[in-house]
Amino acid sequence: MRTTVIACSIALLLMLAAPASAASSRGIVVEVTSITAATRPASERGEAAAALDPRLAPFSKNLRSLFAYDSYTFLNKDRDAVEFGEATVFKLPEHLSIEIAPEQLGRDGSNMIEMVVTLFREEPRREGGRETPKREVVLRTKIRLKNGGTVLLGGPPIRGGVLVLALSARG
């Protein structure tokens, strides 16, 4: 019994100490949820509230209060661990991609994650008989996001509406 208590106590201490020290010193975990926001034709809309995919329940309050679209469709959710000074890229629909490059966490003890977020659009172009992809920076922003927090990005048109991204990061 005493051994069990000691072992569990040590495990709990490790549990509390490990995430704070290890993750913050090496990098962060980012999660990107892709959503299509659209406005339905008046004939389909009726009196009903904005249609929301059940998988978007964590963001329902934000989507309904911040945007005026009346339909939100879940597209994909992806997660990756990325070290400070490096970047991770998530593929998005219709030749779009988002690159997240964390720089540091907790400067001045603020518990904010500094990162550069870049939204690319890559379109195949035919030049001189050869197909060469053209990569455009649709959006580049440097942000400081509260550790564990979420920021919404979006705007690029995609089939059926516009793309909205919920970006969460934890160090």
Partner: peptide, 19 residues
């Protein structure tokens, strides 16, 4: 838990579009 529990404080230091 989604975004409800965590603070979502975010400071935008710079923003641009090159397209």
């Amino acid at each position: 838990g989604g975004t409800a529990a965590a603070s979502n404080e975010c400071i935008v230091d710079s923003i641009e579009s090159l397209a």
